[in-house]
Write a protein that binds this DNA or RNA. Sequence first.
DNA 1: ACCTGAACACCGTTCAAGT
DNA 2: ACCTGAACACCGTTCAAGT
Lengths: 211, 211
Amino acid sequence: MAQLRREDVLAGALDLVDAEGLDALTMRKLAASLHVQAGALYWHFDCKRALVDAMAERLAAGVGGPVATGGGTWDEQLTELAVRLRKALLAHRDGARVVTETACAAGGANTLLVGRTSTELLITAGFPPEQATWLTFALIHYVLGQTMGEQARAEFAARGGPGTAQAATASEEEGNEAYRRLRASAQSADPDEQFAYALSVFLDGIKHRLP
Amino acid sequence: MAQLRREDVLAGALDLVDAEGLDALTMRKLAASLHVQAGALYWHFDCKRALVDAMAERLAAGVGGPVATGGGTWDEQLTELAVRLRKALLAHRDGARVVTETACAAGGANTLLVGRTSTELLITAGFPPEQATWLTFALIHYVLGQTMGEQARAEFAARGGPGTAQAATASEEEGNEAYRRLRASAQSADPDEQFAYALSVFLDGIKHRLP
DNA sequence: ACCTGAACACCGTTCAAGT
DNA sequence: ACCTGAACACCGTTCAAGT
């Protein structure tokens, strides 16, 4: 076995998360999968957090790149950007959680680039810089939240989590049960369709607000 | 010291999170703060996850309640609902994380009620049930994401996290640095204003999509 | 019914010492 | 430069035994 490169650690971490989920990502398990002792990983990464940050950067690679392939309008390009981000998050198990944990506070070059590209599109469209960044944040947070919820449901289904707190009073529970069914049926629909719909609604709002 | 009630454990957990953040919430620390052994907590809660679920339920209490206080229009009521949710999340440190970890997959009676109320408002407004639930999800995910980002930044500032992955090439870093400044200045503005703006834009989109 | 004491099977991280 | 071995200071969870 050749010497371990930082690159190999990153790839091993992604593989482990894909195979067992983010909660199973452990420095010790990762080390074992790379046939190395746990301490060895700290030569390549300062701490676990730095490793997860690097994973987020890897996931976001390319997403913020140029969008003007077909010379579409700015709102088509913004839609394309959101769809690319979502696709990137879905490419790996728990991908949205990986990016959210890191991007909300710090954010590396690739995750920053996504926000930057969106903001530039909105400024070009005519928004003041401040509003452009606000709408960018809203858009990215929506994509992250929606996709995280989707993946969380997948994890929940895969494992079968513990019960849901406790029961409420009978009357409340009755109405909520009806809503639960409605929600479940709505979610059995194509998640991509759901995402595309809400995204287009938000973009409609942005278009109508254009100064 | 009287006997420990489930209620006391919940209150102690909320206090601990407020004082030290969600990452510091540990069954052992919580037990110590209640002057009890760690194992004792498992009499009141099946596992840590169940405790956090109960915390989320507590945070969401009342948010989904009736909104028609002033007889406003449906979109005013929906705005009020979103504002109430946000306020509830901000009432406790890491509140958005607490609710997100639990609500994305399972969801207790109170968290369900928020979605139910929103969906009913949109159905009353004229949306088909399926679209009403989709827009509800989008709205809630936006509120959760935006607030979580805000609180994550607060945590980051309070502690000073580890560095941001690694440097990119000089040209990339230059443009991103400019964006980073823009973003920072936009975020130094009032978060409530930022939230209200993006929320009204999304609601504009919803109004224009009304069948 | 409610809690203690003590254990089990893990964690992330550090660091001398090896090669 | 890169890794091992072994430790340190923690975790969540379980469970006999006490009261």
